[in-house]
Amino acid sequence: MSITSVRLQPEVEQGLEAMAISQERSKSWLINQALKEYIERQTQEKTRWQETLHAMDSVAKGQVVSGEAVQLWLESWGKDDEKSPPQVGQ
């Protein structure tokens, strides 16, 4: 494990200290958890943005599923003759 120094604003340091005491965890553990969650969120955000760009490109190319086909599919859910998800061009 590596060591990295971080300068904290006094109010952040005070909040961190209080949280470490209340949760019976070290400040290092709390900082690691916070950074881990931040990195995961940023990664998810980047993935969602790429998926959004891909979806917008598909729409621009006319690669879409009609609302009617989706509605028919949804109405079939839970029935004996449940339909497969609609495909592009249906």
Rank of each mutant, 00 (worst) to 15 (best):
Q42I: 08
I3V: 15
P86T: 04
G78D: 10
A20I: 05
W49R: 11
T47W: 03
I21H: 08
E68Y: 03
E11N: 15
S66G: 00
W49K: 14
E82C: 05
Q23F: 00
Q50V: 09
S66R: 03
T47L: 00
E11A: 12
K27Y: 08
L35C: 02
L8H: 11
Q44H: 06
L35H: 07
K46Y: 09
A34D: 07
L53W: 09
R41G: 03
G78V: 09
G62I: 06
Q90R: 06
T4W: 06
D80L: 08
A55T: 12
L8P: 07
D57S: 00
K61G: 10
I31C: 09
V64W: 05
E24S: 14
T4E: 09
Q33T: 00
R41S: 06
V6T: 06
D57M: 04
G89P: 05
L72T: 11
R25F: 06
P86W: 05
Q63E: 02
S26P: 12
L53H: 06
L74I: 15
Q23R: 09
L72A: 13
A18P: 01
G78M: 13
A18D: 10
Q42S: 12
S28D: 09
N32L: 13
G67A: 01
E13R: 13
G67W: 00
E82T: 10
N32I: 06
S2K: 15
Q71F: 13
D80N: 02
A34K: 00
I21G: 01
I31H: 08
Y38R: 10
S58D: 03
Q42R: 14
G15R: 14
T47S: 10
S26C: 13
D80A: 05
S2D: 15
E11V: 08
R25Q: 04
P86Q: 02
V59Q: 13
E51N: 01
M56H: 06
E51F: 08
Q23M: 09
K46F: 10
A69W: 02
E13C: 11
Q44V: 09
G89W: 07
P85F: 00
L16R: 04
H54V: 10
E45R: 09
P86M: 00
A20L: 07
K83Y: 10
T43L: 13
I21L: 14
V6M: 03
V64I: 04
Q71C: 10
V88G: 01
K36G: 01
G15L: 13
G67P: 05
S5G: 04
R25C: 05
R25G: 02
M19T: 15
M1D: 10
Q63G: 00
E24F: 08
D57V: 07
V70Q: 07
S2M: 14
L16T: 00
K27C: 08
M1A: 15
